[in-house]
């Protein structure tokens, strides 16, 4: 059985050769991941990130952008490692949303 990520050899359309620079969102997710896996912190290892990404359901794997997949995996792993809780994340999201509405 192959996972959602194991796509070598499948049929697919033409390659989009356009180069788009990373957005600031992409850069921040990339930076956060690199800091978390750095041995000085060792929040988790790249292997764990792979497991998290490779366990996405097909529809999520296909519809999320590359760095959205990374971020979803980071969220899962920091919760798994008891670094953050889902409740803390939800509370912070609500707080940030309220700040933005309040201007």
């Amino acid at each position: 059985m192959t996972g959602v990520h194991d796509i070598g050899g499948q049929d697919a359309g033409p390659i989009d050769l356009s180069d788009h620079a990373l957005s600031s969102f992409d850069q921040r997710v990339d930076a956060m991941l690199m800091l978390l896996v750095h041995p000085n912190r060792g929040a988790f290892r790249v292997d764990a990130l792979r497991r998290a990404i490779e366990s996405y359901r097909q529809q999520d794997y296909d519809s999320l952008s590359y760095y959205e997949r990374w971020l979803g995996a980071v969220r899962k792993l920091v919760v798994e490692q008891d670094i953050l809780s889902e409740e803390e994340i939800a509370a912070k999201i609500a707080e940030l949303k309220a700040q933005k509405v309040g201007g």
């Binding site: 921040r28 519809s63 994340i89 912070k92 940030l96």
Partner: peptide
Amino acid sequence: QDELGHASSYYVILEEAIRVLLIEKGVF
């Protein structure tokens, strides 16, 4: 995400939330 691959507003705020929390906890 939209067609250009920009992150959706949900993921943008999720990124900020996780980053701010990890800074508050002293992870980085």
